[in-house]
Design a protein around this nucleic acid. Structure first.
Lengths: 200, 200
DNA sequence: ACATCTCTCTACCATATGGTAGACAGAGAT
DNA sequence: ATCTCTGTCTACCATATGGTAGAGAGATGT
């Protein structure tokens, strides 16, 4: 069972960190969740910072992979492609609600950890910005600052996926039917926001 | 100077909680920031939970007031009105970046605190949903689920305002000029997302 | 048989944290 | 003058937390 414990620790830590925040989750709690002594955690990850970093890198990798696959599988039309990416992010985010919440934690951690995390995602971001720019030039996406459009799309998706409070405020419930509605509305929202305006 | 200390505690706590998270900020740190003994905090707010609650209620009230004023002062057109609200939220959010970050904390706190916070904002949310519905009926806002549209707008604004990491990822810098650009793009994004589609 | 390596554990420890107890100083009120 | 109330402080405490030291059990290689 080599690595089994390590994997279980990573999964539990991902959920707990993403759900309740890194600082609010103690090593004891994670250990209890995994069903192991705290020492075992510190054997696999020499310090809490190491564990946090490993969790973040793993999350970044998972998202990257899902997104890359969605891009390759999608059609040529930019709005379809963006929809495919959103769907790809939405799926793991729903199966594991802590995933995106985790990313919000980055801003609170040490700059070093944040830097490592960014390095992991940088190529993806850069490509997205370049892609948006070319599609704007071709008139298939509303002309705007591609950097900020990328950030806004990300903020919308992450925001809606990580703020259960907001959805609760408007009477939304986390059922499958409601979830599908939410995804549909999210996609329509983004399509409208990105569609080229008529005067070009 | 009655209440002066109390106010200073509230302000420091708002900033620190919003910036670094409730659990990561100790009473000692807040006390040091205010320049006062920890005991003085516990004199004004009997426990940390009480302080958290007070901070949240104050933030909710501030936002409510700013939004109400913006609504009253705005024109009849729904997109203009929404723009006015966004500007109203954007201003305090920029002056005090911790304000919106604080709201994200709600989901992590005890349900009781969350409930109290929601009660404060509920009327505002309900009115927004009703308003969106009527404007959709009048054909001045893209037809969709008004509850989810409200949540999506909120997620977009909050997301972009509270995720400096994302903006940094795309090379954005927090200068005044860039800030204006961001606000402009955000408003254009929301306008596009909310404008009625042409086939009605 | 022995040594080594891997993995998990129990037993501690130093520090930080939320909170209690109570002293002390100043301002009115009587 | 003394009592009381308000606001701030110092001294302390119980607990939780990240981390260290090192032992024990089982597998593996020689």
């Amino acid at each position: 069972m080599a690595g089994d414990t390590r994997v279980r620790i990573l999964e539990a830590a991902t959920d707990l960190f993403g759900l309740r925040g890194v600082d609010s989750v103690s090593l004891d709690v994670i250990a209890a969740e995994v069903g192991v002594a705290k020492q075992t955690l510190l054997y696999w990850f020499p310090s809490k910072d190491d564990l946090v970093q490993a969790v973040l890198v793993q999350a970044a990798t998972q998202l990257s992979v899902a997104i890359e696959a969605a891009i390759r599988a999608s059609s040529d039309d930019p709005l379809d492609r963006i929809e495919a990416v959103v769907r790809a992010v939405f799926r793991p985010a729903v199966r594991r609600p802590s995933l995106l919440g985790l990313i919000r934690e980055v801003s609170r951690l040490s700059p070093a950890v944040g830097e490592r995390f960014h390095a992991e995602l940088r190529p993806l971001v850069d490509r997205a910005v370049v892609y948006l720019q070319t599609e704007m030039d071709r008139g298939r996406v509303r002309r705007a600052d591609p950097r900020l459009i990328a950030a806004l799309c990300y903020a919308t998706v992450t925001g809606i996926a990580t703020e259960p409070e907001v959805l609760r405020s408007v009477g939304w419930q986390p059922t499958t039917a409601e979830l599908r509605r939410l995804r549909t509305e999210l996609l329509a929202f983004l399509r409208a926001a990105l569609a080229p305006s008529l005067g070009q």
